[in-house]
Simulated assay, not measured.
Amino acid sequence: MPLRKIIAPIRELSDSGKLSGLLLLLATLVSLALSNSAWGPRYLHLWHTEVGAGGLVKSLAHWVDDGLMVVFFFLVGLEIKREVLYGELTDVRHALLPVLAAAGGVAVPAGIYLLCTAGTPAAHGWAIPTATDIAFSLGILSLLGSRIPPGLRIFLTALAIIDDLLAVLIIAVFYTAGLHLGYLLAATGLLALLVALNRLRVSWLPVYLLLGLGLWFAVLQSGIHATIAGVLLALTIPTASIEKLEHALQKPVSYLILPVFALANTAIVLSGEAVTGLLSPLGLGVGLGLLLGKPLGISAATWLAVKTGVSGLPARVTWRMLLGLGFTAGIGFTMAIFIANLSFTEPARIDVAKLAVIAGSVLAALVGVAILKTAPEAEDEA
């Protein structure tokens, strides 16, 4: 039937993990096209429309970042907990390699960014190029099919999850505004209650989600970024419910929340000033941090870990494959754009940072694919 012929390829893309990355790319292109069309002013105004009541009045764009993205961070927290409990991060020796690689992949891009922006107000955005977009990165690997050994895919997944954890810690520590003690104490109390419920083996999910809503509100009002509440809540969820929640949230996050985030956060007017800003210290810091910093940091940290005997390369993974993976990890997109929003208040600077994230991510993806497509199998490498 004609309908089946349409649905079958879409289902295949969804099952392979490619569809989520394609939707993010499509949402970005649509948002950029609308922003620079005759409908641009109306489209930009839409995302700045304020919605809410009482003390909770925010623009639609802020609700996406402070509301919808909490669900994304909740899913990230669930993935972190699952990997630590019975995934690739359970065994200390196996976990060390992606942990060290992720640390190198954060430190070197941050260093490159700071070298480029030293002495400028843009230096505050040092964390922008440190993040890896797990959906896009894994989507790139899935495009290459059987050429990619399972060990490389697992390594990238573990690395990206640790990378997300480091990004969450960076947001909590370095991108927190003035703290409101009352709300911070309330958040602490709610978190303690959630932990107690977990220890008492309470398995009724609605009570966790209801208290989680209170935790989100308290964290939002405390001055700490609201998305941290999503991760904290995830870490208190009963182990038996983790996979069920992950399964329930995977599609809404991949096919609704992240595309909406892309629409809201890539509404950029491509003025001459914004485009030339790619060659400014800010633009170069972000772009080079993603394009060069990620592969350098990941490769160097991995090489040191292997040469010192701390860990070994995954099965059938070659050094050339690892370099290609390093470039693929330079796709920052979602988390990098998110941190760009937290780093600056000036719209022009935010736009330059976002454009640099897009440019750096695209170039990193292209180089990563080129290297991985030509990388020989482990047994063929000299």
Results as ranks from 00 to 15, higher is better:
143 L>I: 12
143 L>W: 15
144 L>M: 10
144 L>H: 04
144 L>R: 08
144 L>D: 07
144 L>P: 05
144 L>S: 10
145 G>C: 02
145 G>W: 02
146 S>Y: 07
146 S>A: 14
146 S>Q: 14
146 S>V: 11
147 R>I: 07
147 R>L: 11
147 R>M: 05
148 I>K: 02
148 I>P: 01
149 P>R: 03
149 P>S: 07
149 P>G: 02
149 P>A: 03
150 P>A: 08
150 P>T: 02
150 P>D: 10
150 P>C: 03
151 G>M: 00
151 G>S: 01
151 G>F: 00
151 G>Q: 00
151 G>L: 00
152 L>V: 06
153 R>Y: 07
153 R>L: 04
153 R>A: 11
154 I>F: 07
154 I>Y: 01
154 I>E: 01
155 F>W: 03
155 F>R: 01
156 L>H: 05
156 L>A: 05
156 L>E: 04
157 T>N: 12
157 T>I: 02
157 T>M: 13
158 A>G: 01
158 A>Q: 00
158 A>V: 00
158 A>H: 00
158 A>F: 00
159 L>F: 05
159 L>W: 03
159 L>P: 01
160 A>F: 01
160 A>V: 03
161 I>D: 01
161 I>G: 03
161 I>R: 04
161 I>T: 10
162 I>H: 03
163 D>G: 06
163 D>W: 06
163 D>E: 07
164 D>I: 06
164 D>P: 09
164 D>M: 04
164 D>E: 08
165 L>Y: 11
166 L>S: 11
166 L>I: 15
167 A>C: 15
167 A>D: 13
168 V>A: 15
168 V>F: 15
169 L>Y: 10
170 I>C: 10
170 I>Q: 13
170 I>Y: 14
170 I>H: 11
170 I>M: 09
171 I>T: 12
172 A>L: 11
172 A>M: 10
172 A>H: 07
173 V>I: 11
173 V>G: 06
174 F>D: 06
174 F>K: 05
174 F>Q: 04
174 F>W: 10
174 F>T: 04
174 F>V: 05
175 Y>M: 11
176 T>D: 08
176 T>E: 10
176 T>C: 12
176 T>I: 11
176 T>V: 06
177 A>D: 15
177 A>R: 15
177 A>L: 13
177 A>W: 13
178 G>V: 13
178 G>M: 09
178 G>I: 11
178 G>T: 14
178 G>Q: 15
178 G>E: 15
